[in-house]
């Protein structure tokens, strides 16, 4: 796998697409809601996207299935794992490599790794995300 090529594609796609797109054939609202939300910092990205499922306190939640806790999570010790999950998605979790630039992916992972009882203080960089991340898949119409 050519990581550099993928990293470039990731950056380009992130520039081109403002939100997580929905297939044209789905029952979606239409063309509205395109106004930029503008999360900039890692914390803003967490509040505006991640906490929808992982909850405001990072502890996740359980019903018929589980949203895993990010709080006190040893799997965040290596930055590579969250970079892969955020850019590629995992199970029911979508990819965010179209909605978030590599810099914002780096910022939010750095935020999570240093909050919610996590103490992995080495910042994750944009270069790390470009190196280990994946480009956004194309939605099937």
């Amino acid at each position: 796998m050519n990581k550099q090529k993928f990293a470039l594609q990731t950056a380009l796609v992130a520039l081109a697409v403002a939100g997580v797109s929905v297939p044209a054939t789905a029952d979606a609202p239409g063309a509205g809601g395109t106004q930029a939300l503008g999360p900039e910092t890692g914390e803003q990205v967490y509040r505006q996207i991640c906490q929808a499922c992982h909850m405001a306190d990072g502890k996740g939640a359980s019903g018929a299935g589980t949203f895993p806790a990010l709080a006190e999570n040893p799997r965040l010790a290596s930055p590579v794992y969250p970079i892969i999950v955020v850019t590629r998605g995992k199970g029911g979790m979508p990819w965010f490599s179209n909605a978030l630039s590599p810099a914002k992916v780096a910022a939010v992972i750095t935020y999570v790794r240093t909050h919610f009882g996590n103490h992995f203080t080495t910042p994750v960089t944009e270069a790390d995300v470009k190196k280990f991340g994946s480009p956004a898949p194309v939605i099937d119409h």
């Binding site: 939100g19 609202p29 809601g33 939300l37 505006q48």
Partner: peptide
């Protein structure tokens, strides 16, 4: 409101 995509996550949070 019928928020989807990034706006959907923002509202859900």
């Amino acid at each position: 409101a019928f928020a989807s995509g990034a706006a959907g996550y923002q509202f859900a949070g």
